[in-house]
Computed example of a mutant assay.
Amino acid sequence: MSGRLSGKIAIVTGAGSGIGKATVELFRQEGARVVGADLRGTDFECDAGDEEQVEALVAHTVRDFGGLDIMFANAGISGGFASIFEQDADDWAEILRVNLIGPFLAIKYAAPAMKERGGGSIVATASVAGLRSGAGGPAYSASKAGVINLVKIAATQFVGANIRVNAICPGLIETGMTELIYERARAKGQEGQIGHLNPLRRGGAPIEIANAALFLASDEASYVNGQAIVVDGGLSASHPFNHQSYGRTTT
């Protein structure tokens, strides 16, 4: 490995599985010292939507590792695909607490620690569901749209601090959150149809999002700020249409 994060100190939330777990492993391979945080089974047990716990997570990292350079606010919940009329205010409050207030808290407490180090990179997991309808339930989609705008606002509030704030918008990725989709497709012998709506005609893997997080966290992305980087196999590049294989012609 090239050690692209050599000497860096990082926090990854939602580190117990999927994208978070893959990112912790990749960051460590690239030379970072990483604190993986999740509700259980990680370096630091933390509810990403609880202010006291997030504050404690950052304080622990600064105290035990000497600072903070990278924060990947990745923790999230889906809330399912229930319609607006099937959800109540409590459903929305919990989804927004984890998916939107969580990244806000990560930014709020990571930024002062990064400023002490002369700068840093904050990355938040949003979603293509935050760009347009059709990729998630109402509350989930609204929360991820909020994350996209949050990173833009945060980037403008850290003028002069050398702190970059960006989001990643994954498409369909095989994680615990999408496990049911994959299981149903495999049970019906339709695994080959997963991701068929995007030009690459497949779902994504957690490591493909981790690679995007690595880029945004590294000095290679030193001029990337306030952006929402889409990693979805091309799904959101167009409106839905009848896909045909490359080189195929119609009569």
Rank of each mutant, 00 (worst) to 15 (best):
3 G>W: 00
5 L>Y: 02
7 G>A: 06
7 G>T: 02
13 T>G: 05
15 A>M: 10
16 G>V: 03
17 S>A: 15
18 G>F: 08
19 I>N: 01
19 I>P: 00
20 G>W: 02
21 K>W: 10
23 T>Q: 00
25 E>Y: 00
29 Q>M: 15
31 G>I: 12
32 A>T: 00
32 A>R: 00
35 V>S: 01
35 V>M: 04
36 G>W: 03
36 G>V: 01
37 A>I: 15
37 A>L: 11
38 D>G: 12
40 R>N: 10
41 G>A: 15
42 T>F: 11
43 D>K: 04
44 F>E: 01
46 C>T: 14
47 D>Q: 04
49 G>A: 06
52 E>M: 06
53 Q>T: 03
54 V>G: 13
55 E>I: 02
57 L>V: 08
58 V>C: 06
59 A>C: 05
62 V>G: 14
65 F>D: 04
68 L>I: 12
69 D>P: 03
71 M>K: 07
73 A>T: 01
78 S>C: 15
78 S>P: 13
81 F>V: 10
82 A>V: 07
83 S>D: 11
87 Q>R: 13
87 Q>A: 05
89 A>I: 07
90 D>M: 15
91 D>F: 09
91 D>V: 09
92 W>G: 14
93 A>D: 14
95 I>W: 03
95 I>E: 05
97 R>M: 08
98 V>H: 02
102 G>M: 07
102 G>P: 09
104 F>C: 09
104 F>R: 05
114 M>V: 02
115 K>Q: 10
115 K>L: 09
116 E>M: 10
117 R>D: 03
117 R>K: 06
118 G>N: 12
119 G>C: 12
119 G>H: 08
121 S>H: 04
122 I>S: 11
128 V>Y: 04
128 V>I: 14
129 A>I: 05
130 G>P: 04
131 L>M: 07
131 L>V: 10
132 R>G: 01
132 R>W: 07
133 S>C: 02
134 G>M: 12
135 A>I: 04
135 A>S: 11
135 A>R: 11
135 A>K: 06
138 P>E: 12
141 S>A: 13
142 A>K: 08
142 A>R: 08
144 K>G: 13
146 G>H: 02
146 G>R: 05
148 I>P: 11
149 N>M: 14
150 L>R: 07
152 K>S: 10
153 I>H: 05
154 A>Y: 04
154 A>H: 09
156 T>P: 06
157 Q>S: 13
158 F>A: 11
159 V>D: 15
161 A>L: 04
164 R>M: 13
164 R>I: 14
166 N>P: 13
169 C>K: 11
170 P>S: 06
174 E>H: 15
175 T>A: 01
175 T>F: 05
177 M>W: 09
180 L>R: 12
182 Y>I: 10
184 R>G: 15
185 A>R: 11
187 A>S: 14
188 K>Q: 12
190 Q>R: 08
194 I>F: 12
198 N>R: 05
202 R>Q: 03
203 G>F: 15
205 A>P: 11
206 P>M: 00
206 P>V: 00
207 I>K: 06
207 I>H: 07
209 I>T: 06
210 A>G: 12
212 A>K: 07
216 L>N: 02
221 A>D: 11
223 Y>F: 14
223 Y>A: 01
223 Y>G: 04
225 N>V: 03
228 A>W: 06
230 V>N: 00
232 D>E: 00
233 G>A: 01
233 G>M: 05
237 A>V: 12
240 P>M: 10
240 P>T: 09
243 H>Q: 15
245 S>K: 13
247 G>I: 13
249 T>A: 02
250 T>F: 13
